[in-house]
Design a protein around this nucleic acid. Structure first.
Lengths: 129, 129
DNA sequence: CATTTCGTGAGAACCGATTATCACTCGTGG
DNA sequence: CCACGAGTGATAATCGGTTCTCACGAAATG
């Protein structure tokens, strides 16, 4: 049976309080502030376990490492700042949801979709290029 | 100055006649049928050059190597078959285009977006799982 | 035709992300 | 409180994708 460890709690805490899905590296960086000796391998192991337990879900965005966010947040999409590479979770309703289950011309049956916005976040909007 | 080579022509030909954007590996496989001795390094080199010349554009999809398609096809999106991993170009109008240039709540300024559909293609629809 | 230089092809090298290894530590059942 | 096995941390190994290296072949120039 799996044990509860402070490392796992720290990782979940970091994910819960993040602005969006985080990469293993980002989780590691932030978790170090709660638990300075935590190792990167431990982060990967716990993310895999938490995903297996259904507590977190993996998020795959283009040109980016695998990110993780807490499960149970419903259908939503993401925004990546092209300057600082921060990824934000978007709350707005999905403009593409009506296409779920549809069959497009050419016989393509839609089972899911991924929508990502790119741009500048508030912090990077005014800053110099 | 850059020379015109049969390899470069073969690569462009392959991209022009593809069903969607191709990875370097896929370009290599298909180009071998036109020019059996072409090497993978040559494919990478020419894709980089063609992209620099503006003749092809790179397409980045989640969980996937960089793909390339001919430039000048206008705004469109893609569909990846989760079974055979083939990526198709979609002609349909974009349901998200109106968000270009918008500023979302939170101060996120949208400069672009990427929309990818996942599902089964016609060939994989009826086939066994 | 000779030259010069760029492009090619094969394989080695590299890269960032992720996983495996292994000795050590700590949480937990007894 | 103790023993033991799961979890940890540091590092090496691995992986797919991509780039580099280098000797050879082929296109433009005189």
């Amino acid at each position: 049976m799996s044990r509860r460890t402070v490392q796992q709690a720290a990782i979940l805490d970091v994910l819960e309080s993040a602005e969006g899905p985080l990469s293993a590296q980002e989780v590691h960086d932030r978790a170090r502030e709660l638990h300075p000796t935590i190792g990167l391998a431990t982060v990967y192991r716990n993310l895999a376990r938490l995903e297996g337990d259904g507590a977190v879900v993996a998020v795959h965005l283009p040109q980016d490492a695998t990110r993780y966010e807490p499960a149970g947040r419903g259908h939503h999409h993401h925004f990546r700042c092209v300057k600082c590479d921060t990824v934000y979770e978007l709350d707005a309703g999905c403009p593409v949801a009506m296409l779920e289950g549809a069959t497009l011309p050419g016989g393509l049956t839609v089972m899911g979709h991924e929508l990502v916005f790119f741009g500048h976040c508030a912090g990077c909007n005014g800053a110099a290029a």
